[in-house]
């Protein structure tokens, strides 16, 4: 590239002074590297992750693979029962979360409720969120005994926290115009909510409920580990006992497949709710063709 530098003469461009290269991007880059590497090293040293540890890890992983492969699907029926139980728990938790978070979401929205209300409600919601489901369940099990009931309560309570926050954000994002219009035409505060806020917020809130259901399925699967019903205990206890690991792995695979299917359905429903448009997947188009040929003669022209 030495030739080319001479090739370009600077005759017609005037004597413009080249700006100095600023220093701060380089400084920021070094700070970023330190912020990433420093804590990482602190963590690695603290966890005593030695070279020995790392050297043995692949072998140990390979051992595990040999233990779980091939997966033993002989108890898939039982697995399904347990997965169903997890689904029930997740569903009830979602219902608890949805019904209780809905009013709380209104009370936490700054454009609806006065500051004296939103502040305590918001702290309540973030307080609830700070308890992981598992910790909540550990506190509830002594009161309600082992089984899916305390699990559903724990996940439900946690869902109130997350859904309440999301609902309030949706409500804060609604267009204020219709509310003002209703108030201006003599409507009460409640009427403004019902006709001005709820129709605008509902699609997004519904989508969040569904999304929460997807998350709650995973949470309820986890809760089984501490004895709150569902698939978790099945997988956990199978993995503890080496000869049973292939069964545990089979259960894990079945769970993954189920969750994938439910996620896919839920995602397409959510898209449908938010956009108001039918999904464009092949399946959806087939359904459309089969079942929606003629509309009732509403448009009598």
């Amino acid at each position: 590239m030495t030739d080319s530098t001479e090739l370009w003469t600077k005759d017609d461009t005037g004597p413009v002074i080249r700006p100095d290269e600023p220093r701060w991007p380089k400084i920021i880059r070094w700070i970023a590297v330190i912020v990433i590497i420093g804590p990482l090293i602190w963590g690695l040293l603290g966890l005593e992750i030695s070279a020995d540890n790392l050297r043995r890890a692949p072998g140990q992983m390979w051992n595990l693979v040999q233990q779980v492969w091939p997966p033993d699907f002989s108890e898939t029926g039982r697995t399904f029962e347990k997965i169903l139980e997890s689904l029930y728990v997740a569903w009830i938790a979602t219902i608890i979360g949805a019904t209780l978070s809905f009013p709380l979401g209104f009370l936490a929205a700054t454009n609806i409720a006065p500051r004296s209300v939103t502040l305590p409600v918001r702290s309540l919601l973030s307080g609830i969120r700070a308890f992981p489901e598992l910790v909540l369940a550990i506190m509830l099990i002594p009161a309600f005994g082992l089984g899916p009931f305390p699990g559903a309560l724990a996940i439900g309570i946690h869902s109130i926290g997350t859904l309440g926050k999301l609902t309030s954000e949706v409500i804060e994002g609604v267009d204020e115009g219709p509310i003002e219009a209703i108030r201006a035409s003599g409507g009460t505060r409640m009427q403004a909510m019902q006709f001005g806020v709820v129709p605008q917020a509902m699609p997004n809130v519904l989508a969040y409920w569904l999304y929460r259901f997807e998350i709650n399925i995973r949470a309820s699967a986890v809760l089984g580990v501490i004895g709150a019903g569902g698939i978790g205990d099945e997988i956990y206890s199978r993995f503890l006992f080496v000869p049973d690991r292939s069964k545990g792995f089979a259960a894990l695979l079945v769970m993954i497949a189920t969750v994938l299917v439910i996620d896919a359905i839920s995602a397409s429903v959510r898209r449908r709710i938010i956009t108001g448009q039918p999904s464009r997947s092949m399946m959806a188009r087939l359904m459309q063709r089969l079942f929606a040929k003629k509309r009732p003669a509403e448009t009598s022209s």
């Binding site: 530098t5 413009v16 600023p22």
Partner: peptide, 14 residues
């Protein structure tokens, strides 16, 4: 930098 000078926009380099 030379390329930027050629199109007369060197002062915006950074």
């Amino acid at each position: 930098l030379q390329a930027l000078e050629r199109v007369d926009i060197i002062e915006k380099a950074y």
